[in-house]
Computed example of a mutant assay.
Amino acid sequence: MSLTSRALWTIDRNLSRELSLAGIAEACGVSRHHLAHTFREVAGRPVMDYVRSRRLSEAAVALAGGAGDILGLALESGYASHEAFSRAFRAQFGATPEAVRRRGSTKGLVLSGPVIAPSRTAPGLPPPRFASAGEILAAGLSQRCAFEDGPTITGIWRQFGPRFGEVENRVQPIPIGVVADPDDEGRFAYTAAAEVRDFFEVPGDLSRLRIPPRNYAVFAHDDHVSTIRQTYRAIWNDWLPDNGKTLADAATIERHRPTFDTRTGLGGLEIWIPLG
């Protein structure tokens, strides 16, 4: 069973209980980082957004069936007050809980039912090599974004490209991409960076990242850079659980090959996946 399938089962089995990204990840035996990336990539939405939508849909069905205790439904749905529940309910359905109860029907409401994840997300992922890396220091431009937000990531690289030469004490002649710090909504910090020996000569407006020593599974992505999500999807949702591996709550690194051409997006890169 893929990771996303396990997460969906855990959520729908425990809708009436307290749920958090950390708790769902623990139940699935993976890190928050791993689950946040995988779920949004495969299911098309953040974990907790799916949880909220499913709970509100279940509440709408209960209200249409005559449920009278709206505060009780609010608490069961993870809201601390009638007011907070009503705001979220109206935002999702365009109607108040009281209106749905009076109408006695969910007709016209777009309900979120249980999602079934695809059994496999991508075929033919080449096996990785395994590598260890000491502490990595990186300096560059960072921005929070969603993984599917390709234009934002492209824009970060476009801004950083002319500034790469400003960074002193570079370790490598080719910049790296760093994916780190996911939140409950499936967003993360993406940094286009130069690997450096120290931060002494780094321009003050650039972000500074200190990545601890780590073991990695290193995957080749040989296709056009715009298709990198397919490789990530196969790694997170299939390769890691199939091989009994877990994604560490740590930064993932994208290393472009010397053959990578910024004009065409061809030439390949490596994805360094931190192992737990």
Rank of each mutant, 00 (worst) to 15 (best):
G265V: 07
G161K: 14
E18A: 08
V110I: 05
H224N: 08
D249N: 13
A220S: 13
E26N: 09
P151M: 11
Q92T: 05
R13K: 15
H221M: 05
W272C: 00
F260M: 02
A250I: 07
L21C: 09
E166T: 06
V225C: 11
P151H: 13
P274C: 13
L71C: 06
G177F: 03
Q159K: 08
G104M: 12
L137P: 03
I153Y: 02
T191E: 01
A133C: 11
L266E: 14
E135K: 15
L19R: 02
L8W: 06
I235S: 10
R229P: 00
R55V: 05
H256L: 08
I156V: 15
T10I: 14
V196T: 09
G244Q: 03
L21Q: 09
G165L: 11
Q143T: 10
A248L: 02
D261E: 04
D198W: 09
N243C: 05
G108D: 05
S53F: 01
A251H: 00
V110E: 14
N237E: 09
A180R: 02
R52I: 00
H82Y: 11
V167Q: 13
A62M: 07
D205P: 10
R103V: 11
R214W: 07
R144V: 06
V225L: 13
E166I: 04
G66A: 04
H256N: 05
V110Y: 11
I211A: 04
L137N: 03
P258S: 02
R129P: 02
I24L: 11
I211K: 08
T96Q: 12
S2D: 01
T264R: 03
E18F: 05
Q230N: 09
R208G: 10
R102D: 06
L111E: 04
L247Q: 11
N237L: 01
